[in-house]
Amino acid sequence: MPSEETKERIVKVIEVGRTVLHYGWIPLIIYVGFTRSNPQPSLIKLISPLA
């Protein structure tokens, strides 16, 4: 069984990872999709619903 200190550290790491995932997941998909797409779309078409 890990010690209390290790447990606290694990909980902290998970919390940070969760926050990163929360704010970074959609930008990550858009970045990956944008760079791997064929042909590469223009940025305005990506974000605007009507463009």
Binding site: I30, G33, F34, R36, S37, N38, P39, P41, K45, L46
Partner: peptide, 9 residues
């Protein structure tokens, strides 16, 4: 925006 690989919003 792309079919292969698939990318859509």
């Amino acid at each position: 925006l792309s079919m292969n690989p698939l990318f859509q919003v």
